[in-house]
Nucleic acid binder design. Structure first.
Length: 873
RNA sequence: GGGAGAUUAGCUCAGCUGGUUCAGAGCACCUGCCUUACAAGCAGGGGGCCACUGGUUCGAAUCCAGUAUCUCCCACCA
């Protein structure tokens, strides 16, 4: 067979992915096995694959592939999220390019454009995941606006409403006065603006000439003031307690209230309260039961309530009122002041906090089990540190505003039949709504009902994901089998938006956690530490990366340096390392396939190699399994990497490899193939494509069921630590010889003789390996030192390589003196410890014993070194 | 402003409940090699006051306190 010396992923990856799909190897159907379920964090339906997805989905694929090999019924459910804000924004943008304004369309027309867009772009990201090798059960692909899914969202809304957990309430929202729309927090960005701090004096009611001075950045809102607030313990203002003040210009009398919210250090320590136009003021207003005076129109101009400047823009008014206050003697001073102002992402206009009627979920009671079951580790977070932020958030949880002033999404199932705040019915359809209200209001007809225009927050559908992907609200069989799911792999940014809420929904609707483990990935950053983003243009295209390095190479590159919760500073070099690793394994295959076979006795070197390698794998497997259990994926990968590259390729294969022109014995070859197969299993979760390819090239397979994807994870065998430590000793001798070759410039092809003065144990079985690896022709035991030889000490045995030329005695002496120094220092330290009574008395016995052993070893090593030194002079 | 976390080699990170000269790994670097699987490779090598200052202890990279610097999340400060 002719195998090229470079591995070419492009010839392999698509082939195996189609093969796996064709044989339905990722498909899961409930059976008698235990399930192992992962639900994908659904990417935005219109999204394209970015580096964050690469990381996240590679981890999921690693976990699910291993689970499959461990014999679980592995089920990875893929799908997409309708992402109302993002998608709607994209559709609006696309329509605008075509000259269509959203405001010119009816809801139905707009939605048909949106669906069209979704159908066109919706599948892209999922196809890209296939290229990555994601072993999802594609038959289960879900979309958060699938009919069944949507139904579950509406039912949940109705259910929570009926339980009294959903209510309508006034709340401050971010209003965009240019676009005339509410914005979500995500659509607001903050900018430091140079502004002014105006000090304005208010007269105390009932006084002749008593005043207090407030500081504000927004003097135009003075017209909407309904209180002055001071800190209850502020001694400067004790005399004002219980008094009232008069608002300049409008001459309204307002109370002076006390609240610890006030920062005494800021401004004058007096705060004016405008509940209609500031979030914090609004909270104060609710707390102190203040009047709400809304002085703005939707477009940011002033209305009648303001009494002055009616119809003029808020920023024009700010200038004018400064002047007018000054003339009236109210303006004390104006300072420069830099403050953070929220801007609309869409129109780049400062947002206006505005009160409006929204739908809320009352979170207090709902969130309790979700907090408890994370804190008590029934749901485990990796890394654990995120439990702290989680608790902090859950402890201070606020009610969840779930209405969004958008069209793309799940429309709120509330139907209004009048203008009153309570003139509505919550029901799944207009017909049901009518039926519900008819008893009370028999005169109403279908046409009298008007559905709420808003849609629900996207997260109000995604929080049902682990349940609704199995249609879990309507049938139990699949849900009972797959739920709770095993692992959730996601980014810490959405711990509150999504993870916490899924847990809440899980306990509320299933009385059970939605997943066992949550693995938080880090953020993928560029070399400069910046978050990768489209706007910065610093993100490589994952597809191009895969084309260049192979999907396996990129997968390895992503996972090499990304422990859970740590950011991943991405460097293409990592992918290169992944590609190189692919090639290394590939060449292992080339070597094994290139051997001529013969029935004969195995070489002693090969026998030792096999004995050692099996134990070495067992040892590595133990730590690999343990690290998987702790979700230390990068460590697992590194163990596999070293096991394959160092232990297998650099040591094992070199030890079993026949000499040039010789053949290998059949038994060693067979065993080598078996060992190779075990290693392929271990790397398969990380490098599914190349491992499957080699699996099939290594030997003939028995049909489709003999694919590596479906093979069994290696069994944990016991291992002999003695053999492993013997190998370390052998390894040290081999390195010693190689080092001398290097230092003395002895070409590899020159055969060497080796003489050993055994002071400590030297196993005979080492000899054949040493001879094989170091091109040593003979190994002889000697009783005396060998003159005219290069030498080194390993495990307190002395090794000599006789050489005819003169050796550099001074250099040898220097080397020995260095070693002697080091060993003397070591001994001194040990002696110090051992002569310290408190150490001997307090330290555990085995620590002391180990120390004694070290002492003995050091003493004999010093003796050997001193003798050698003496013999040289 | 509230909360969380970090600081170990040039880079990215291990170092679990203090105890092997505890200071490790991968990459990068340096030096030899185109040795008949692989130069996308092989072999060898250099490199660190474990942020700083104290404390606890027979013993501290590891535990405690303080200092400095950095990162993230939440809030959006009149």
């Amino acid at each position: 067979m002719d195998i090229p010396n470079k591995y070419d992923p492009s010839l392999v990856e698509d082939k195996w992915y189609s093969y796996w799909l064709e044989h339905e190897m990722f498909k899961s159907v409930p059976d008698e096995r235990e399930s192992y379920t992962i639900v994908i964090p659904p990417p935005n339906v219109t999204g394209v694959l970015h580096m964050g997805h690469m990381l996240n989905n590679t981890i999921q694929d690693v976990l699910i592939r291993r689970a499959r090999m461990l014999g679980y019924n592995a089920c990875w459910v893929p799908g997409t999220d309708h992402a109302s804000i993002a998608t709607e924004a994209k559709v609006v943008q696309k329509l605008r390019k075509e000259g269509i304004k959203k405001s010119d369309l009816s809801r139905e027309e707009f939605l048909s454009h949106a669906w069209e867009w979704k159908e066109k772009h919706g599948g892209i990201i999922l196809d890209q995941l296939k290229k990555l090798g994601a072993s999802c059960d594609w038959d289960r692909t879900r979309f958060t606006m699938d009919p069944k899914y949507s139904e579950s969202v509406l039912d949940t809304f109705i259910d929570l409403f009926e339980k009294g957990k959903i209510y309508r309430g006034k709340r401050m929202i971010n209003w965009d006065p240019a676009a005339l729309t509410a914005l979500s927090d995500e659509e607001v960005f903050y900018k430091e603006d140079p502004g002014k701090l105006y000090h304005v004096r208010y007269q105390i009611a009932g006084s002749e000439d008593e005043w207090l001075t407030i500081a504000t950045t927004r003097p135009e809102t003075i017209l909407g003031d309904s209180a002055i607030c001071i800190h209850p313990e502020d001694e400067r203002y004790t005399h004002l307690h219980g008094k009232r003040a008069i608002v300049p210009m409008v001459k309204r009398e307002i109370p002076i209230i006390l609240d610890e919210y006030v920062d005494r250090e800021f401004g004058t320590g007096c705060l004016k309260v405008t509940p209609a136009h500031d979030v914090n003021d609004n909270e104060l207003g609710i707390k102190h039961n203040l009047e709400v005076i809304d002085i703005f129109n939707a477009n940011g101009s002033l209305n009648e309530q303001a009494q002055f400047y009616i119809g003029e823009d808020r920023f024009d008014v700010r200038k004018k009122i400064e002047n007018d206050l000054k003339e009236a003697g109210h303006l004390i001073k104006v300072e420069e002041h830099i403050h953070n102002v929220g801007y609309s992402e869409r129109t780049n206009v400062p947002i206006e906090p505005r009160l409006s009627l929204q739908w809320f979920v009352d979170m207090k009671e709902l969130s309790k089990p979700a907090l408890d079951n994370v804190m008590n580790d029934r749901i485990r977070f990796y890394p654990e540190k995120f439990k702290n932020s989680y608790r902090n958030w859950m402890d201070n949880i606020k009610d969840w505003c779930i209405s969004r002033q958008l069209w793309w999404g799940h429309q709120i199932p509330a139907f209004y039949f009048g203008e009153g705040e309570n003139d509505f019915v919550v029901a799944k359809t207009k017909e049901e709504a009518l039926a519900k209200i008819q008893e009370e209001r028999p005169e109403l007809e279908l046409s009298d009902l008007k559905r709420d225009e808003d849609v629900m927050d996207t997260w109000f559908s995604s929080w049902l994901w682990p349940i609704s992907v199995f249609d879990g609200f309507y049938k139990q069989d699949e849900l009972d089998y797959y739920y709770p799911t095993k692992d959730l792999v996601t980014a810490p940014e959405i711990m509150f938006f999504w993870v916490a809420r899924m847990i809440i929904a899980g306990y509320e609707y299933k009385g059970e956690k939605p997943f066992q483990n949550v693995y938080y990935t880090g953020i993928v950053r560029d070399k400069l530490g910046r978050k990768m983003s489209k706007s910065l243009g610093n993100s490589p295209d994952p597809i191009e990366l895969m084309n260049e390095y192979g999907a396996d190479g990129v997968r390895v590159g992503m996972l090499l340096t990304s422990p859970a919760g740590n950011d991943l500073p991405f460097d293409e070099k990592l992918c290169e390392q992944g590609r190189n690793f692919s090639n290394k394994i590939w060449n292992g295959l080339r070597l094994v396939k290139g051997w001529e076979v013969e029935e004969k006795k195995a070489s002693p070197s090969a026998e030792f190699a096999i004995k050692w390698m099996k134990f070495r794998i067992a040892e590595a497997l133990e730590s690999i399994n343990a690290n998987y259990d702790k979700f230390r994926i990068s460590e697992v990968l590194m163990s596999c990497y070293k096991l394959v590259w160092d232990d297998f390729c650099n040591w094992y294969l070199e030890m079993v490899k026949p000499k040039y022109g010789h053949s290998i014995d059949a038994k060693t070859l067979k065993t080598t193939i078996a060992i190779f197969e075990d290693l392929l299993k271990l790397i398969h979760p990380f490098m599914p494509f190349i491992s499957e390819e080699i699996w099939h090239l290594l030997r003939t397979r028995n049909g489709a069921n003999d694919a590596l994807v479906l093979s069994n994870w290696p069994m944990q065998e016991s291992y002999d630590k003695q053999v492993l430590s013997d190998f370390e000793k052998l390894n040290d001798v081999v390195s010693g010889i190689r080092k001398i070759r290097k230092e003395k410039n002895i070409p590899n092809k020159n055969e060497l003789e080796l003489k050993v003065k055994v002071n400590n144990e030297h196993k005979d079985e080492f000899d054949s390996v040493i001879a094989h690896l170091c091109n040593v022709s003979s190994i002889k035991k000697v009783d005396e030192k060998v003159e005219q030889a290069f030498s080194f000490i390993s495990n307190n045995n002395e090794y000599f390589i006789p050489f005819s030329d003169d050796i550099d005695i001074e250099a040898e002496k220097e080397k020995l003196a260095k070693q002697l120094d080091y060993t003397n220092g070591l001994l001194k330290k040990i002696n110090g410890k051992l002569s310290n009574d408190s150490f001997v008395n307090n330290a555990p016995e085995q620590v002391v014993a180990a120390e004694r052993k070290k002492q003995d070893d050091a003493i004999s090593k010093i003796k050997i070194l001193e003798e050698k030194l003496a013999s040289l002079s």
